[in-house]
C-alpha cells in the first residue's frame, strides 16, 4: 500500500509515541536498579551496583527465582505433552463431542485469571484436600499453558494438512512410525514456539498464582508483589524486575523467530 508523505509521517509519529509510552516505564525500572537514591530520585544522583549484589545475595529473591523456573519448566513440559496430544486428536480424528472438547480446551485462556484462581483454590483445598504448594501452582499454570501449546500445534497441523500422514500410511508406516517420521518433524518448530510462550506466560503469572501458591512459596512475581512496598527492599525489587524482563523477553523473541522461519519455509 502506498501512503502519502503526510500520512507516513503521522503514522511514524503515532507509532513512536506509543512505543515510548510503553517502554519508558520499563527503562525507568532498569535505570532505577542502578540508582544510588533509595527513594528513586530523578534524575538519579548517581549510579551503583550495590542493589544488584544485594539482590544476588537475597535468599528470598533467589528462592523465588528457583521456584518460578521449576514451575515454568514443569508446567511447560506437561502442557507440551497434553497440548500436542489434544491438538492431534482434535485436528486429525472425528469423534462425538469434538467441537465441545475444542471449546473447553481453549476456554481457560479467555476466563479471567481470578475466576480460574478461585476455582482451583476451592478444588485443591475443598475437594482434593491438597495443601497449597509448588505442586498446586504447577497444575494451575498447566491449565493455561496447555492452551498456548495447543493453539500453536493445532495451527500447524491445519496448515500442513493430513496428506503427508496418509502418504506415510500408504507406504506402510503404522500410526506411531508416521508420528515419529512425518508428523513430529512437521510440527517441531510450532511445538517449541508454543513451549517458549508457555514458559514466559507461567513465569510472569500472578493472579492464578496468588490463589494456588502455598504460604512461603513465592514465585518471582509474588515475591515482587510482597516486597514492593517495603522501603528497604524497593531497590532490590527493581533488580528482580529487570531479571524478569530479560527472562521473559528471550523466549518471546525466540518463539517469534521460530514462527517466522516456518512461514518462510512453508510452500
Amino acid at each position: 500500500m502506498i501512503l502519502s508523505k503526510g500520512a507516513r509521517r503521522a503514522f511514524a509519529a503515532i507509532t513512536g509515541v506509543i512505543l515510548l509510552l510503553m517502554y519508558i516505564p520499563l527503562m525507568l525500572v532498569v535505570v532505577n536498579s542502578f540508582n544510588t537514591s533509595q527513594a528513586f530520585e530523578w534524575p538519579p544522583p548517581g549510579f551503583t551496583g550495590e542493589w544488584w549484589s544485594r539482590a544476588i545475595h537475597n535468599d528470598g529473591a533467589r528462592e523465588a527465582l528457583w521456584t518460578s523456573v521449576q514451575v515454568g519448566i514443569v508446567a511447560t513440559v506437561v502442557a507440551a505433552l497434553l497440548g500436542t496430544l489434544l491438538a492431534l486428536a482434535l485436528s486429525r480424528y472425528q469423534f462425538f463431542g469434538r467441537t465441545g472438547v475444542n471449546l473447553l480446551v481453549v476456554l481457560p485462556i479467555a476466563l479471567p485469571g481470578i475466576i480460574t484462581g478461585i476455582a482451583l483454590n476451592n478444588a485443591f483445598r475443598g475437594i482434593l484436600d491438597l495443601r497449597l504448594s509448588i505442586l498446586t501452582v504447577t497444575i494451575a499454570h498447566s491449565t493455561f499453558c496447555i492452551v498456548t501449546v495447543f493453539n500453536n500445534v493445532a495451527a500447524r497441523l491445519r496448515q500442513v494438512g493430513g496428506n503427508l500422514e496418509e502418504a506415510s500410511a500408504d507406504l506402510g508406516a503404522g500410526v506411531w512410525t508416521t508420528f515419529r517420521l512425518v508428523t513430529f518433524p512437521q510440527l517441531r518448530t510450532a511445538l517449541v514456539a508454543g513451549m517458549l510462550l508457555s514458559f514466559a506466560l507461567s513465569f510472569d503469572e500472578i493472579v492464578v498464582t496468588t490463589f494456588t501458591a502455598g504460604a512461603g512459596q513465592d514465585t518471582l512475581p509474588l515475591w515482587i508483589f510482597n516486597n514492593m512496598f517495603r522501603p528497604n527492599q524497593a531497590p532490590i525489587v527493581n533488580v528482580v524486575a529487570v531479571v524478569m524482563i530479560l527472562i521473559s523477553i528471550i523466549p518471546i523473541w525466540l518463539a517469534q523467530r521460530l514462527s517466522d522461519d516456518v512461514t518462510a519455509a512453508a510452500p
Binding site: N163, L164, E166, A167, S168, D170, Q186, A265, P267
Partner: peptide, 10 residues
C-alpha cells in the same frame, strides 16, 4: 497411491 498433490515429505 500417487496422490493428486504428490504429498512428498518436505
Amino acid at each position: 497411491t500417487v496422490f493428486q498433490d504428490y504429498a512428498l515429505f518436505p
